[in-house]
Amino acid sequence: MADFGFKLSKSSTLDLDKVDLKVYNLLCKTDPDIKTCMACGSCSATCTAAPFSGMSMRKVILALQRGQDVRPMLGKCMLCGKCTMVCPRAINTRHLILSICKCYD
């Protein structure tokens, strides 16, 4: 096909009825406070690992709710715990990260 410098991109629509929420549902059991996240992004703003990997706890939780893979992002988390300290919803994000690291097999 001729290259016109643009192309049709795949639809990014999510069908929430079809996504695999296995990991998210598992986390809702081990860390129920994940459900109280209001996506304010304080955790992402303070993240030590963010400059190195684009790690963002807000994005991680969003991706989990959408059934997407979060493994590459967590690969650079340093577990420093600042996200837990600033969370206005008092979510133990540090424990949540460890739980996510355990969930995948």
């Binding site: 190195f52 493994r71 967590l74 690969g75 650079k76 988390c77 340093m78 577990l79 460890l98 996510i100 690291c101 355990k102 969930c103 995948y104 097999d105």
Partner: peptide
């Protein structure tokens, strides 16, 4: 003792 499936690595930073 606990095993994790995501293991962080910083060597390529």
């Amino acid at each position: 003792i606990r095993e994790y499936s995501i293991n962080q690595d910083y060597s390529d930073i």
